[in-house]
């Protein structure tokens, strides 16, 4: 019984961490250099977005100055940001503001 309880506690702890913690997000920022066609292509090939979503996000970056392109764990977002920097896009990660 005690064993079961302990395991439940462990699970509960993990659940709290994943459910209650705000996720991390990857933000791509507008810059005057990168081409719309290139950014869309990266969003499709790297993140796997379809053309419509890739275009929507690219226009969001272009017109609003930034767009959240991914959310999840801090480690995942760090990988995405490094990948974006490899493509020459200006990206940062932070905790979700929502």
């Amino acid at each position: 019984m005690a064993d079961t309880l302990e395991r439940t506690d462990e699970r509960t702890e993990q659940w709290q961490q994943t459910v209650l913690e705000r996720p991390w997000v990857t933000i791509v920022w507008n810059d005057p250099v990168n081409l719309v066609s290139y950014v869309e292509w990266i969003f499709r090939t790297y993140f796997g977005f379809d053309r419509t979503e890739a275009h929507r996000l690219t226009m969001l970056v272009h017109n609003e100055g930034k767009a959240v392109v991914a959310s999840g764990t801090r480690e995942e977002m760090e990988r995405h940001v490094t990948a974006m920097h490899g493509f020459g896009l200006w990206a940062t990660l932070q905790k979700d503001e929502a």
Binding site: V81, H85, T92
Partner: peptide, 24 residues
């Protein structure tokens, strides 16, 4: 070309840079 990965924390940005900048 090698921007900060964190905007709001110079400490996090520097830490992250230590681990990633060389390869990038």
């Amino acid at each position: 070309l090698l921007p900060d990965a964190y905007r709001d924390s110079a400490e996090d940005a520097a830490e992250f840079r230590r681990f990633t900048e060389s390869e990038l």
